[in-house]
Structures are given as C-alpha cells and as structure tokens.
C-alpha cells in the first residue's frame, strides 16, 4: 500500500463509523472499551489544521480545553479536575519546556477505559503573532503513539468511533520519516521571524534593503544565471522581494538580500524540499508547468512568503508590502520575456 494513502484510509475508515453525539454537541471519540483514549485525543489534534478550540471531557470528570491550529497545540485554555495545570495555563503560547506538563495533562484527561468526548468550536482570538506551539507529531512521538494506525495491516473492523492508533512500545528512538501533509516538529526554534530578523509589523533595516538598481541591472553580488525565468521573476518583483534564493535549475545558488535571512530560507529548503515539492505537485494543474505560490496574512500588507517553481529550480523569498501589486505583474512579464 502507498504510505501516502494511509492517512486517507484512516480518515475514510473513521468516517464510516457511526458518529456518537453527546449532549451539548460534543462527539464521543473514545468509549469505555478503548484502551487508548489518549491516542484518540492526539488524532483529534492531528486532524485540526484550521484554528479550533478543542474541549476534551472525560468520564472521570476531568476536562482540558486546548487551542489547536496547524496540528499544533498552541495554548491550554482551561483545565478542570487535573493536577499541576498551572504552568501550561500560564503560558501564552506553549513552548518546548511545557511538553512534559502538557503530556501529563493529556494522560490525566484521557485515561484508559474511560469515555472521552470533544467539542470543537472556532477559536475566539487572533492567533497572529503566536509562536508555533507544540506539534502533535512531537507529542505522539514522545508518547510512543502511532498516528497512522493502518500502517502495516488494516484493522479488523470499525468497532470504535475512530480507528484507535496503535500504542507502540519502542525501546529505542526510531528514525522519523514524514509523508507530505504530516506534521513535522520544529527543528530550529526560536521563531523564524526572529531568525529572519523581521516581525509582523517590522520594517527592514535600511542596510537590509536590496537596492532596486541592483536587481534591475542584475548586479546583485550573488545573482547568477541572469536569463532564467526565476531570476526574471525576482527582478520583476523588485525591492519588495527583500530576501530570496534559488535552489536547483540553471540559476542554482542565486541569492539576494540580507545574508542571515537568506541562510534561514536555505535551511528551510534543505529541510522541507521534498514536502514542498509535494505541495507544488498537489496544486499543479499541469505537470511540469511553472507555478508560483504566495502565502500571507493578507497579501497586501505585512510580509508574505513567495515560492515559485520552474523546472528543477525553486525560488523562495520574503515579500514586504503589497504582494498583489507586484507578483502577478512580474509573473506575466517573466513569462513574456521567456517567450
């Protein structure tokens, strides 16, 4: 079986089970017969990409309310009937130092052979500026819980509300491999904004700005392969593209912008190159065609991430300001220049 399909089969399997709705609109995600309600709790977090407040309530009488987004636990909002919750409750955003305390809370609210319910509601606060929280993949790894229950063999039948992930006892840490779409632990805290030297509302240091004339004339000290589509695209965006680099293709190694920012973008591509390629493939409507993705809080203010692929080359950069004004125009111009 293709490993990439495992999460899909797991989800389909879960959808075929009979939904059990508890009073108040919550859902039963583990029953008295479940050996690992904790795995069901982690699965619920793992399936939460968009920001949600998840309120878990156990038949032991304890409850734990978490803010979850991007398969990460951002914050503990409330805890009832659980000991030693103070440190997590006091944290505006969960950091690595809180992981052991959070795991204890999760274990306490989801003991074996007890019913566990969840109520998911939209997050009521703005999460902009909140750091990354704790990835569920990291928590699952520490708890020796496999979030892909169908790996190896299909389960016998839908006897539980959702497929109960295996709890695997591993005497030694296993090498972790990630499939596209899996969550990946953050490898290099602190926040990238700090590492990139910019904040949500930060303006670039004067010396950090790339002189427009350099880009227009192709005179950036590191710019190579001046004729490629990606180079033409970067020039077309101009000084708003405050830091960028190209990996692969005829312009491999071309960079511009503050060295520290470029270095961190380079690290991201080195770590996430395969996953990024998969994301491009999923968005591509025509295999092998050039594509550009811009992701930002609003696109027209603040900062945005730009990522473009042309053949084997990938351009990754940070745009400051109104990306809607520049990127499409530069894309059309670059396409025309390439004929």
């Amino acid at each position: 079986m293709n490993k990439a399909a495992l999460p899909i089969f797991a989800r389909l399997h879960a959808l075929q089970t009979v939904a059990r709705v508890a009073p108040g609109g919550s859902r039963v995600i583990a029953t008295l017969s479940d050996a690992s309600p904790l795995a069901a709790l982690l699965c619920e977090v793992n399936e939460t990409v968009l920001g949600r407040t998840l309120a878990f309530e156990s038949s032991v009488g304890a409850s734990l309310t978490l803010e979850v987004s991007g398969r990460r636990v951002l914050r503990v909002v409330a805890a009832s009937g659980l000991p030693d919750a103070e440190s997590c409750l006091a944290a505006a955003a969960l950091e690595d130092e809180h992981k052991d305390d959070l795991i204890k809370l999760m274990q306490a609210v989801a003991p074996p052979r007890h019913e566990l319910r969840v109520l998911a509601t939209p997050m009521t606060r703005d999460v902009d500026g909140v750091s990354v929280g704790l990835p569920v993949a990291l928590l699952a790894d520490l708890l020796l819980i496999n979030l892909n229950p169908l790996e190896g063999d299909l389960p016998a039948g839908p006897s539980t509300p959702r497929p109960a992930p295996d709890v695997v006892a591993r005497p030694t840490p296993r090498p972790v491999t990630y499939q596209p779409g899996d969550d990946r632990p953050v490898t290099a805290p602190p926040r990238l904004s700090a590492r990139l030297g910019v904040g949500a509302a930060a303006k670039p240091e004067p010396e950090a700005e790339t002189p427009a004339t350099d880009q227009e004339e192709g005179a950036g000290t590191d710019v190579q392969g001046a004729g490629s589509f990606l180079i033409t695209l970067s020039r077309g965006i101009g000084a708003d593209l405050m830091a960028w680099l190209i990996v692969g293709g005829e312009s491999d190694g071309a960079t511009d912008g503050p060295e520290e920012m470029v270095s961190h973008l380079q690290g991201f591509l080195a770590d996430e190159g395969e996953a990024l390629a998969a994301q491009f493939d999923q968005l591509s409507t025509e295999a092998g065609k050039d594509m550009c993705i811009v992701l930002g809080a609003s696109l027209d203010t603040g900062h945005s991430i730009l990522c473009a692929r042309s053949g084997p080359g990938v351009l990754l950069g940070v745009i400051e300001g109104d990306a809607t004004q520049t990127v499409l125009r530069a894309w059309v111009s670059a396409g025309a220049a390439q004929g």
Binding site: V49, L192, S193, A200, F268, A275, L295, G296, A297, C307
Partner: peptide, 11 residues
Amino acid sequence: DPLFSLSVEAF
C-alpha cells in the same frame, strides 16, 4: 505544510 509552517513561524 510546509509553507503554512514557514508562514506561521515567520509572520
């Protein structure tokens, strides 16, 4: 992910 994570971490 992975661009979602990059954006969350950065901005």
